[in-house]
Design a protein around this nucleic acid. Structure first.
Length: 844
RNA sequence: GGCGGCGUAUCCGAAUUGGCACAGGAGGCGGUCUUAAAAACCGCUGGGCGAAAGCCCGAUGUGGGUUCGAGUCCCACCGCCGCUACCA
């Protein structure tokens, strides 16, 4: 019996040191092997690693290790997303510097990653707060500026009062909350820096179709966020105080130009620049001002409470409807949003529920009805009287139908993307009063932050030349370290940083003191990994094109829009610059589920954190790695439980004892060379079945069932040893099974596998350099197969027949087996499913 | 309101194109070994009958449908969870 004692700590620390010495995980570009780039989202160094990290990086490590054994040259890097606000907050709290806190946490996490045995190429590490990294972020920024993709403009922006900085649209989450601190954000009109991601809206949308390896749900989230809607721009002429149409046109966007004849009023957002001018000094001013003021007052929180009541006021002015020349009143309404479309809306109460409610509330007309729910034939619809002129319904009808009351267009099909919609748009376009157009919900990416701990924006404000980019040869703009964050200082408090000369005219000028959104750092780090020590450019095109796109990306679903959209944008920009030759950065995406405790996400503030280091101390990292994968499929949320950890440890020890016994018996010659008895045949078949299963499961990321496959093979090995007495066992087979188990286990429990491979099985070089076991389909074939026999859908018998039996013979055997059930009944039909079952249908 | 996901044993979970529902683990019960315990190994763990082999019945949130056959496909409903939201 095996004397093997599983001592994870000795084994794990020993082999971790050995692997470093042997340089096992260095990725090379010149091996001639097919490449595989396995990438996990780099962590933010907010403290030591938690169970979510363990799960994320273990998944990546298993994929990387298995790919390597399967013959790929694997790039598996790690780095840190190290700029950002938590470092500033922590620095204030601990009276230190953000850099101190950040680097200390990076060290801590790095040590934990090494203790977990992750197979990273440590020579390619990236820390985004290192000047060697962020200088190239500045470089890319300047190249984007050259291409007209950088813009400084004034507009209403999201402001987080707690973080004291502006936020991009994507960083406002939930109920108008800051993505990081969850404070409610407010709106402010500010001049800020933007990346013109909207220039890429269509491509970002279209190319989602080129990503079959991404989860449907992530793609649909991105598509919704980009929010493409087709419709038309329509120009309404503003009337003067005497209600005479002027040359001044107000543009609206509508998805339903076919309902233009049903427009009975016109709406402006409270923030619309025209509002003040229209009502200034008129009797309408006070009512309108009140709506504007209440909209301003209304915080994001209040807007979330239940059904919102709409508020509005008449401006006293009119616009002319371009299709029929009717004048309709202009109202200000707080349900019109300034930051979607044009901030002006044509109201069609019969077709839009919001307009309908507003009309009811303020006694505005709802008729004419232009696209009613009932089908109206073309002839009767030509007659105005044939359709209701008064409505008694309680809701608008937004669906498709036949256009009525619509002049020459009556009788056409109306609705989204309808004949009528295109006809009206074309009619408008001919007269210069509108055109078909597409509107996106996506806004430009606001990238400037009024914070210290970030990548400085390389720009200079010159009183004579205006905004001037820092010349590329002057990079980097180094983030100064002598800043006292505890006093709330930013770069704007440091003249020695911002006082400079204009690169263009040489006159005195001021450096930009905003830093870039940290999401700019994370939008290209995966490219830097391909050439991490390049000091003449961000990365060489050769290296990037060799490794990229990343074959497998792994990270949390919370980045479905933010990081993943920005990275796709950067990649497309870099492709347009000729720096890379691919349009998408990540071929396959795996979004792993959260690790929860008692149904909620683990967090320090809730005090429900399970520390990985405690688990490692008790069981070793191999048990923890295998256990967290075994608990649930990777994309599902996982409820942490301590029960079962012991079981995983027991399993690893159980495998070890079998491997030890098999090796010992083989060495001692205590058995037979090759037996070929039924028990051996069965074990041999089971071994190959499991090779096939585990290989397939890993490819499908079903790590939980892959591990259960290992348990099945282990159980089969124990069955064999119980059924066949010592001395009669097939030594070669036992050893074969032992080696197979160790090889299949290597990605999951890399240290124990290494110990068993090198020390117990005497395998020589590392188990992680061995070839993945080859699946032999023919070895799984059995001479006989068992089939279930169903009668009218219920299993009534089992038969065992030769694998090569003809269908006719199978049916004959099957009918005999269920004779009792079909006796005296008419057999109407027999279905044979090869290798599975026989289904007999009888009458009565 | 919209979009998406989920619902299988006491618990976590298998079941890849429709084909013997519940693999694997946890927990529970029992056995072997032992003076005893732990560990290890073995068995049982939906209900009924049976000493056992086995036989019968029930069962994938609920109700329908398609099919020789449905956890899987279709329709409706219930429950839970995400994301999004006056998007014109």
């Amino acid at each position: 019996m095996s004397e093997f004692v599983y001592d994870p700590h000795r084994i794990e620390e020993h082999w971790q040191a050995e692997w470093v010495t042997e340089g096992l995980y260095r990725a090379r570009e010149d091996t001639g092997k097919p490449k595989k780039y396995v990438l996990e989202m780099f962590p933010y160094p907010s403290g030591d690693i938690h169970m979510g990290h363990v799960r994320n990086y273990t998944i990546g490590d298993v994929i990387a290790r298995q790919a390597s054994m399967a013959g790929f040259e694997v790039l598996h890097p790690i780095g840190w997303d190290a700029f950002g606000l938590p470092a500033e907050n922590a620095a204030i709290k601990s009276d230190s510097h953000p850099a101190t806190w950040t680097y200390a946490n990076i060290e801590k996490q790095m040590a934990s990653f090494k203790r977990m045995g992750f197979s990273y190429d440590w020579d390619r590490t990236v820390k985004s707060c290192d000047v060697d990294y962020y200088r190239w972020g500045q470089w890319i920024f300047l190249k984007m500026w050259e291409r007209g993709l950088v813009e400084r403009k004034s507009s209403p922006v999201n402001w987080c009062p707690s973080c004291a900085t502006v936020l991009a649209n994507e960083q406002v989450v939930g109920d108008s909350q800051c993505w990081r601190c969850k404070s409610v954000v407010t709106k402010r009109e500010l001049e800020q820096w933007y990346f013109k991601i909207t220039d890429y809206a269509q491509r970002l949308l279209d190319d989602l179709d080129e990503l079959p390896g991404w989860p449907e749900r992530v793609k649909s989230m991105q598509a919704n966020w980009i929010g493409r809607s087709e419709g038309a721009e329509v120009q309404f002429a503003l009337c003067d105080e005497a209600d005479k149409p002027t040359d001044e046109l107000i543009t609206v966007f509508t998805t339903r130009p076919d309902t233009l004849f049903g427009c009975t009023f016109f709406l402006l957002a409270p923030e619309h620049p025209l509002v003040a001018r229209l009502v200034e000094g008129t009797e309408y001013a006070s009512a309108v001002d009140e709506v504007v003021a209440s909209a301003e007052r209304e915080t994001a929180v209040e807007r979330q409470i239940g059904e919102r009541t709409k508020h509005g006021a008449f401006t006293g002015r009119y616009v002319e409807n371009p299709v029929d020349g009717r004048l309709v009143p202009i109202w200000v309404a707080d349900y019109v949003l300034m930051d979607y479309g044009t901030g002006a809306v044509m109201a069609v109460p019969c077709g839009d529920q919001r307009d309908f409610e507003f009309a009811r509330q303020y006694g505005l007309p709802i008729v004419p009805v232009v696209v009613p729910a009932e089908q109206v034939d073309a002839v009767s619809s030509a007659v105005l009287g044939a359709v209701p002129q008064e409505v008694d319904w309680e809701a608008a009808y937004p669906g498709p139908g036949t256009m009525v009351n619509s002049g020459a267009f009556s009788g056409l099909a109306g609705g989204k993307d309808s004949e009528g919609m295109h006809a009206v748009a074309a009619w408008l376009a001919e007269r210069g009063l509108g055109r078909e157009s597409v509107n996106f919900r996506l806004r430009d990416w606001l990238i400037s932050r009024q914070r210290y701990w970030g990548n400085p924006i390389p720009a200079v404000h010159c009183p004579t030349c205006g905004l001037v980019p820092v010349p590329i040869e002057d990079l980097p703009v180094v983030l100064p370290m002598d800043i006292d964050i505890t006093k709330g200082e930013t770069l704007a408090d440091h003249p020695e940083f911002y006082e400079t000369t204009c690169p263009k005219c040489g006159g005195a000028a001021k450096r930009e003191t905003d830093t870039m959104d940290t999401f700019t750092c994370s939008s290209w780090y995966y490219l830097r990994y391909t050439d991490a020590r390049n000091d003449t450019e961000p990365f060489s095109a050769d290296n990037a094109n060799y490794w990229m796109p990343a074959d497998q990306y792994i990270g949390g679903i919370e980045h479905a829009i933010l990081h993943l959209l920005y990275s796709r944008f950067f990649t497309k920009v870099l492709q347009d610059m000729g720096m890379v030759d691919f349009p998408e950065p990540f071929t396959n995406l795996l979004t792993q589920g959260m690790v929860k405790l008692d149904g909620t996400t683990m967090s320090k503030s809730k005090g429900n954190v399970v520390a990985p280091e405690d688990m490692i101390a008790k069981y070793g990292c191999d048990t923890l790695r295998a256990y967290i994968l075994f608990m649930a499929p990777p994309d599902k949320d996982l409820e942490w439980s301590f029960e079962g950890l012991d079981g995983m440890f027991r399993f690893l020890a159980r495998v070890s004892r079998f491997v030890d016994d098999a090796a010992e018996e083989a060495a001692a010659g205590n058995g037979v060379a090759a037996s070929g008895d039924p028990a051996s045949k069965k074990l041999h078949r089971e071994m190959h079945r499991v090779i096939g299963k585990v290989t397939d499961d890993v490819a499908r990321f079903q790590f939980n069932t892959a591990i259960s496959g290992l348990m099945e093979l282990t159980n089969a090995a124990y069955d064999y040893r119980r059924e066949v007495p010592a001395g009669e066992r097939d030594l070669a087979l036992q050893r074969d099974v032992a080696e197979t188990l160790v090889l299949l286990m290597a990605p999951f429990a890399p240290h124990l596998a290494e110990e068993l491979w090198r020390e117990v099985l005497g395998g020589g070089s590392s188990v992680h350099l061995q070839a993945w076991p080859a699946f032999d389909a023919s070895a799984v074939q059995s001479d006989e197969v068992q089939l279930a026999v169903q009668v009218n859908g219920k299993v009534r018998g089992k038969i065992v027949v030769a694998a090569d039996f003809s269908e006719q013979d199978v049916i004959a055997v099957a009918l005999t087996a269920v004779a009792d059930w079909i006796e005296g009944k008419e057999v109407k039909k027999v279905v044979v499913v090869a290798g599975k079952l026989v289904s007999v249908v009888v009458a009565g």
